[in-house]
Each structure stands twice: as structure tokens, then as C-alpha cells.
């Protein structure tokens, strides 16, 4: 008869991923590279916001982009037009990136040659929030047409983010979107969350956002 042995584990299912993410952050710190994990729903204007952000910062800092969006052949072409190096990551059919996949991407792009590497995560508000990628800061884009109740429906992503960009504020008059409510709901989940209402289309609010990002990059890389 087979003998059965019980091994007590009692560890979070995220324990291994979190340990790897912490190793990535240490390597980034040592090599003076800032990794930003950008998350959002599909259609929130993530790529357009990213292109505007790159345009504002590319003369000051060296930027690289890692694309993980599922339909990102189009996105990758748009990023390529900015003249910024970008690579495509493969999630192996998963709905998120974990620390292991991010590490492979960082090696492939040669992260130590950049001040800022942007990880454009899979367009989804659930899975990417659960897996720490090793990013220094997590940023989420919420767009006006998605509605102001998202912090109530997807609480986790708001708790793991450092900054929330509210995009498409140019269409506020046409939607039943309460900007104060979304700020209140989001701060309820995460009192430290920085909130930047912007329009990537008109450029409104972009300066406050890119100034914040630049300051974060400089502080992390130790050249502030």
C-alpha cells in the first residue's frame, strides 16, 4: 500500500511571484532603471496616452516599451513611430503578465540601457492587478466612458496602483461620469493614490502627469 505524506505549505499562491518581483526591483534599482506597469481596460486610450507621455519625456530620459496587449500589432506600430525601442511580450495565452515573463522581457529589451521601461500590460482590470510584475510603480488608466463605479467593481486594481489617470475628460459633458465620485471611491480603496484627470487627445492635464512620472523616475534612479 502507498504511504501518503502531508506537507504543510500555508503560503499565499502569490508567494513565489512576489519573491521574484522583489528580485527584479532590486536589479532595477542597482542598474538605475525605473519600470512602470501600465494597466487598463481595452479601449481606455492606453496607447495614445503612452505616445503622448513618450513625446513629452523622450528628450529628457531614455525610454523603452514592452507591449503585452493581445492585439498589439497595431499598438507596436504606433509606438515604433515615436522612435522609441519597443518589444512584444508573449503571455502564453494568459490574461496577465507575471514576474517571470516581465523578467524575460527586461532582459530582451536590455533594460539597463533605459531610464524608464514601460510595461503595457494586458487590457484587463482583474488579472494584471493580482500579479506583481516587479514594477517600481503601477499606473492605471480609467476612461470617462467606462463609468465612475469602477473602483467599486474592481477594488483590487485601485489598491495596487500608485497613480490613476482618468482619460478622455474632453468627453465629460456627454457622459454620466462624476469625477468627484470616482476620486472619492478610488481614495476609499487607496488613500495614497495620485489622480490625474487628462485628455490624451487635447493634451489637457498631461503636464501634471508627465511631471509626476519624471520626478518618480529621477528619484528612483538617484539623479534628482
Amino acid at each position: 500500500m502507498d504511504r501518503i505524506k502531508i506537507i504543510e505549505v500555508k503560503e499565499s499562491i502569490f508567494a513565489d511571484n512576489d519573491a521574484e518581483a522583489n528580485r527584479i526591483r532590486q536589479a532595477l534599482k542597482k542598474d538605475k532603471t525605473f519600470l512602470m506597469n501600465l494597466m487598463s481596460s481595452p479601449g481606455s486610450g492606453k496607447t495614445t496616452t503612452l505616445i503622448r507621455t513618450i513625446d513629452a519625456l523622450k528628450d529628457h530620459i531614455r525610454i523603452g516599451v514592452m507591449e503585452a496587449d493581445i492585439d498589439s500589432a497595431v499598438d507596436a506600430e504606433k509606438i515604433a513611430e515615436t522612435g522609441i525601442p519597443s518589444i512584444q511580450l508573449h503571455t502564453g495565452g494568459m490574461c496577465h503578465l507575471d514576474a517571470g515573463m516581465t523578467e524575460q522581457g527586461l532582459k530582451e529589451i536590455g533594460y539597463e540601457n533605459f531610464d524608464l521601461v514601460v510595461l503595457e500590460n494586458v487590457g484587463n482590470l482583474v488579472c494584471p492587478a493580482e500579479f506583481d510584475t516587479g514594477a517600481v510603480k503601477n499606473v492605471m488608466i480609467l476612461s470617462v466612458p467606462e463609468g465612475h463605479d469602477k473602483p467599486l467593481k474592481y477594488p483590487l486594481i485601485f489598491t495596487v496602483c500608485d497613480a490613476l489617470i482618468i482619460n478622455k475628460i474632453d468627453v465629460l459633458p456627454y457622459f454620466d461620469f462624476d469625477l468627484d465620485k470616482v476620486k472619492e471611491y478610488a481614495h476609499m480603496r487607496n488613500p495614497k493614490l495620485e489622480i490625474f484627470p487628462i485628455s490624451a487627445k487635447t493634451g489637457e492635464g498631461m503636464e501634471a502627469w508627465t511631471d509626476w512620472l519624471k520626478t518618480q523616475v529621477m528619484e528612483w534612479n538617484g539623479n534628482d
Binding site: 502507498d2 504511504r3 501518503i4 505524506k5 506537507i7 505549505v9 499562491i13
Partner: peptide, 15 residues
């Protein structure tokens, strides 16, 4: 949370 509580394995010495 989601936690791995325990795993049951066949003891190799008895295989």
C-alpha cells in the same frame, strides 16, 4: 486570500 494549505504526496521510500 488564496493560500496553498498543504500537499499530499506518495512517500518515495514506500514506492
Amino acid at each position: 486570500d488564496m493560500t496553498i494549505k498543504e500537499i499530499e504526496v506518495f512517500d518515495p521510500e514506500e514506492q
